[in-house]
Design a protein around this nucleic acid. Structure first.
Lengths: 193, 193
DNA sequence: TGCATTTGCCTAAAGGGTTTAGGCAAATGT
DNA sequence: ACATTTGCCTAAACCCTTTAGGCAAATGCA
């Protein structure tokens, strides 16, 4: 019998597709073996274990997302940049829900450090250069933007906005407007007397 | 041998504790049976299946969270109310990470409708009565607040803020300040020419 | 109190996912 | 053509889920 041509990369890639189609929690070594029409044990030469597979998908998603972000940010600043990056997150989560879920996996410190995670912080911080914020307000604002992007995208994906009008698609640009207005007018730290 | 005194409620309660201690994805019928020192099959008289157990924990968490929210909101308005509700979410997620994760479970439509979910929307909407917003901006603002609360709390719980200064605890009140400022000065919808 | 019914927890068994050990065959290099 | 490496296999152990059917404890009723 000819060989299937398994590779760590191919497995992770297929795992990402499986995640998008069936959900990240359905990503299993067994399901992946079925997809390659191969016995389960065969995958263990290419992937340490089930966790490593999931981690691989998470790292792929973080990288893809960061790549899209960099591309979208190129040549933009201010509200343009804010909108562009926000749209990247939302679009990615809608197109690749399984991968987006994977990107939320809690990584081991070594994996996290080697991941594209830090690129994400840097991208958001880059956006803030178009606004007039200094530390520590800049860090607070980075965290606010991260929270809004992630929060909105997961709630939309989870169907939280399905039972009220208008559609989430109408809210999104208004949230970006609001964030832009807020960043242009960031409130000073209250003086503690 | 005497009986263990199993009950659907007791199982869900213990499942919630297990979730907080070991993580929501470690909540398993087997683990729960071990905790009650009982055979696995015995639980199936009280819980339809593994999914129903998890759903039960999710509904419990949503209810507890809504109860805390109502209590915190009583007699407060404006920024006081905003801070109180935000703190409820953050504190609950920190004290009960497993339950909080459970509350994010995607529910079947019937379960969702019967859950405390709608109470959450109503609480946030109640806060907005202290600000000067009319529909559809009010809905947009509800969604923004939900996104920020949920986004911040999950990112903090996921360790996203662990590798930068200052501590997340310092950012949180500044985010509430910022949201208050934003709601008091909500930008009008741009006129589409 | 004694007996019948209900209820609760049990054993048994089948099905699926994970993981390791060890084997044979396909690919690769000389 | 042959030796080595590599890739996928079988086999087996372990854990979680779920159903079927049984026995004993609790409960209700005379």
């Amino acid at each position: 019998m000819p060989r299937a041509g398994l590779t760590t990369e191919r497995l992770i890639q297929a795992g990402a597709e499986l995640a998008d189609e069936e959900g990240f929690d359905q990503v299993t070594v067994s399901a992946l073996a079925r997809r390659f029409d191969v016995r389960v044990a065969s995958l263990y030469s290419h992937v340490k274990n089930s966790g490593a597979l999931r981690t691989g998908i998470a790292l792929l998603a973080l990288r893809e997302l960061a790549d899209r972000g960099s591309a979208a940010l190129a040549g933009r600043s201010g509200k343009d940049a804010l909108t562009a990056l926000g749209d990247v997150y939302r679009d990615y989560a809608r197109q690749h829900p399984g991968r987006y879920a994977a990107a939320q996996l809690r990584l081991a410190p070594e994996d996290a450090a080697a991941s594209a995670g830090p690129r994400h912080s840097r991208m958001i911080r880059a956006i803030l250069r178009g606004y007039d914020l200094t530390e520590p307000d800049q860090t607070h604002a980075v965290r606010l933007l991260g929270s809004v992007f992630h929060g909105f995208v997961t709630m939309e994906g989870g169907g939280s906005f399905d039972h009220s009008s208008p559609a989430a698609a109408e809210t999104w640009p208004r949230i970006l407007d609001a964030l832009d207005a807020l960043l242009r007018n960031w409130p000073a730290a209250p003086t503690t007397p």
